[in-house]
Design a protein around this nucleic acid. Structure first.
Lengths: 238, 238
DNA sequence: CGGTCGATTGACCTATATCAACCCTAGTGG
DNA sequence: CCACTAGGGTTGATATAGGTCAATCGACCG
C-alpha cells in the first residue's frame, strides 16, 4: 500500500512527515498481520520493530505474579506500538481483532528519528496525548463505579470512532466494541460478570441498545455521558 | 543557582544538554517556590510556563464533577511539569511539601526545543518513562488489594529516593512519605481510613516501622516487595 | 448432536467504604 | 502557663459494591 492511501496517514506517527521523508519511510516499512487473540509480544521478549496500527485493535496488558491482568493500553488505528530505543517489550501486546501493523525495524527508524525532527516531534505529541489519556484512565480505575466505568468505556470508543472518521459526536451513535466482556473487565478493573451485569442494566434502562454482543447503539450520547461520572471529556478526543 | 550545581542536573529535562545550550537555559530560567498545600494551577487555567521540580514534591490531580479525586501524577525532584505547546493546564497541580520549581516561559522553551534536539529527545524519554510508570500504576489501581497498594507505594518512594541519591536498593531503608494519609488515599484509589488501617497492619506485623507519621523504616525491602503483589519492579527505576 | 466458547443471570461473600468516635500534637490566646 | 481548638491520624461498627462460585443460555462448529 502506498503511504498516500494509508487510512491512518493523517493520525499516525508519520502524520507530519513531508514528501521525501515519506518516501524513506515507504522504503523501510513492512506490513504484518495478526489474527484475533494472537500474541504480538510478551513482556521481556525481544521486539525488533516499532509499528503503527493500520487497522484493527490491539491491547497492552500488565500481569501480576498470581495472574491478575490489567489492560494498560488499547491501540486503535493510528496508535503507535513499541518504544524507540528499547528493544525489549515492557508489556504483553496482543491483537484483539484482525490487526494490520505498519512496522519499522528499530535501527533505521532510530536513524530516521535523529535526522528528521517531524517524526520525533509527532511521537512526542502522541506520547503526551497517551499520557493524558492514561491519567484520565487512572481516575476511572481509582474512583469510578462499575456503571460509570462501562459508560466511560462506551464513550471513549464512540469518540475514537468519530475522531477517526472525522464525524460528528453526539445524538444517536452506533459503536462496535473492540473487546470481549472479559477483555473489557481487564480494561476497567472489574470482573467479566460485573461488566455483563452493568451492560445488561444500561440496556434495560434504555441507555444503550444491544443488537449483537459486540454491536451497541447509543441512543443518546449526552445521556450516557451523564452516567460516566463526569471527568472533562474534552481531553479524550485525541 | 548555577545549573552545574543543580541537584537535578543529571535527571531533569536539561540532563542531556551541552554547555552552550545550558547557558541559554540558564539565561531564560527563573525559580518559583511554593508552600505545602499551595495550588500551582487549576485544570483549565492558563499556565504560562513549564518547569522542572528542583526540590520538594507536587501532585497532579483529576477530579470528578461530584468531587472524587484521583492523584494521577506525583512529581519528585527532576520531574517535568507542564506540556510544551499547551498553555492550558490539564490537571490541578499542587505542592505537597516545600517546593522549588525551575521554570521556563512557553515561548522561549518551545523555540529552544525546535533548535536543540537534546531537549526534545530528553523530554520524549521522560514522557515515555512516565507513560510506563502510569501503566504500572493502572495495574495497581485496577487489580491490587489495599495492602498491596500501600506496599507498592512505599517501594516506589524508596526506589525514587535511591535513584535520586544513586544509592543502593534493598535491605533496611528509611523513607520519608511525601504525602499525607488523605493524599495517599487519593493516589491509591482508597479512603484515608483504609490507608491508615493497612499502614497500621504492616506496622503491627513488622513489615514496616513507623517512627513519625511521615517517616517509615523498611526493615527488609525484599520482604515488603513480596507484599506488593508482584509486578516486575524493574520498570519503576526511572 | 455433543462440545466449546462467550455471555448472562443468580446466590452468596468479602474487601473496602462509610459513618462516627477518639487520640495526639501543635498552635493560639487569655 | 494552661485551656481551647484545629488538623491529621487511628480505630471501631456497620453497610455495600462488586467479587466469587455456579448454573444456564445461545451460537457456532465439526
Amino acid at each position: 500500500m502506498k503511504c498516500e492511501q494509508c487510512p491512518v496517514r493523517h493520525r499516525a506517527v508519520c502524520a507530519q512527515s513531508e514528501w521525501d521523508d515519506l518516501g524513506q519511510l515507504e522504503s523501510m516499512k513492512f506490513y504484518r498481520s495478526f489474527e484475533p487473540g494472537q500474541l504480538i509480544t510478551c513482556e521481556g521478549d525481544r521486539m525488533d520493530f516499532v509499528a503503527s496500527v493500520v487497522s484493527g485493535a490491539a491491547t497492552l496488558t500488565r500481569i501480576t505474579e498470581d495472574g491478575r491482568a490489567q489492560i494498560v493500553g488499547l491501540l486503535l488505528p493510528g496508535d503507535f506500538l513499541g518504544r524507540p530505543g528499547r528493544e525489549t517489550a515492557a508489556f504483553n501486546a496482543a491483537a484483539v481483532s484482525k490487526l494490520v501493523l505498519c512496522c519499522f525495524r528499530h535501527k533505521p527508524f532510530n536513524e530516521m528519528m535523529q535526522k528528521t525532527p517531524q517524526i520525533a516531534h509527532r511521537l512526542l505529541q502522541m506520547s503526551l496525548d497517551e499520557l493524558d489519556a492514561a491519567r484520565d484512565w487512572m481516575l476511572l480505575l481509582g474512583r469510578k463505579l462499575a456503571r460509570e466505568k462501562i459508560a466511560s468505556f462506551l464513550l471513549i470508543i464512540a469518540k475514537r470512532k468519530a475522531a477517526l472518521h472525522n464525524s460528528q459526536l453526539g445524538g444517536r451513535m452506533e459503536v462496535e466494541l473492540p473487546l470481549s466482556r472479559a477483555a473489557m473487565a481487564d480494561y476497567l478493573g472489574l470482573t467479566l460478570e460485573t461488566v455483563s451485569r452493568q451492560i445488561s442494566a444500561l440496556n434495560r434502562e434504555g441507555m444503550i441498545e444491544l443488537t449483537d454482543n459486540r454491536l451497541v447503539i447509543l441512543p443518546d450520547f449526552g445521556l450516557l455521558a451523564n452516567e460516566a461520572g463526569g471527568d472533562s471529556p474534552g481531553v479524550w478526543i485525541i
